[in-house]
């Protein structure tokens, strides 16, 4: 059944695409089989992440960027992530409200995703859903994270190009010096630039970038200086410059060899992530949920600490691991 689904996706069947994304969100063997079949067809899309604090205008910017890519002839897949309630497991996914201009275009596919407990700004399955859109032939995949704070930086591993969206009035120049979100930006956008304070915000970001350049921190390639661009996503002004910067960054990634290095880093992260999940699942299947719950009770009653519990649980399995 999954093989048939994959074939239909490769032929451009949008319903099959939507179905497989649901299967991947719910996880399990059928999804993994489908991903294995699709994987050779991936690796062509330019994955662009859009992240930033809630209300900075990420969805509106995604709407404008998608229109721009379409005018330039590229098809666009969009994954928009919103948070799951930690209490009920429900979610209100509202990013489509800002993307109504994109309706009716067969060159665009929008999917809303709930985080389902993940804390890094994306859902566990977001990376795999990006792969499906890539295999389905979308030239650009835009990934909009949840509204993030300072340290939800998973997007940097999923995307080739990360756009960090800021808005005027959200913080002083010290905020711009902090570690985390600022560091992962390949392109910085000050949206709502028609509002007071936009120039100051842009200047604070420029200064922070300049300081970072002098201290030459690790991880960032000195040859790419993230541009600070001003946009008013609501009326589209400044968006053309962002599109140019995205294209320039892609060219830079390819000419510098960074594209393949990032692919390699992502492969490593995907591998360890999948291993962690699989090992934990196998381990729980082996020792049983009840053993886990009993230890949780004891830890809560202060009869044992977490590390003692882990050692004791691991000792129960003969390999000391998860065999």
């Amino acid at each position: 059944m999954t093989v048939e689904l994959v074939l239909r996706i490769l032929e451009g069947d949008r319903r099959a695409l939507a179905r497989l994304i649901s299967l991947i969100e719910d996880d399990g063997p059928p999804a993994q089989a489908a991903l294995a079949t699709l994987y050779p067809h991936t690796g062509r899309a330019h994955v662009v992440g859009i992240t930033g604090a809630p209300g900075t205008g990420k969805s509106t910017l995604v709407n404008e960027l998608a229109k721009g890519f379409r005018q330039r002839g590229a098809t666009v897949g969009i994954v928009a992530v919103d948070p799951t309630s930690p209490f009920t497991g429900g979610a209100l996914l509202g990013d489509r409200v800002r993307m109504r201009d994109l309706a009716g275009d067969p060159g665009i596919f929008i999917r809303s995703m709930a985080t389902r407990g993940s804390l890094g700004g994306l859902a566990r399955a977001t990376g795999d859903v990006v792969k499906v859109l890539d295999a389905a032939g979308f030239a650009v995949v835009l990934v909009e994270t949840v509204g993030v704070g300072q340290a939800e930086v998973d997007i940097a591993r999923t995307a080739h190009t990360t756009i960090v969206v800021e808005a005027p009035g959200l913080g002083d120049d010290v905020q711009a010096l902090k570690a985390g979100l600022m560091e992962i930006a390949d392109i910085l956008v000050v949206n709502k630039a028609d509002r007071p304070g936009a120039a100051q915000t842009a200047r604070a970001l420029e200064v922070a970038l300049e300081l970072g350049r002098n201290s030459a921190g690790p991880g960032k390639d000195a040859a790419w200086r993230p541009p600070v661009l001003k946009t008013v996503a609501l009326d589209g002004s400044g968006v053309a410059e962002v599109l140019e910067a995205v294209a320039a960054h892609r060219a830079y990634l390819e000419s510098s060899g960074l594209w393949s290095r990032r692919e390699r880093e992502r492969a490593r992260a995907d591998l360890t992530g999948a291993l962690e999940r699989e090992l934990l699942a196998r381990f729980v299947a082996r020792v049983g949920e009840t053993a886990l719950e009993e230890w949780a009770d004891r830890i809560a009653r202060r009869e044992a600490d977490v590390y003692t519990a882990v050692r004791s649980l691991l000792m129960r399995t003969d390999s000391g691991g998860c065999g």
Binding site: T84, S85, G90, A91, R96, A114
Partner: peptide, 10 residues
């Protein structure tokens, strides 16, 4: 949402 569903609001 509060009943645990994923609601897409357009």
């Amino acid at each position: 949402r509060d009943a645990g569903m994923e609601v897409i609001y357009t």
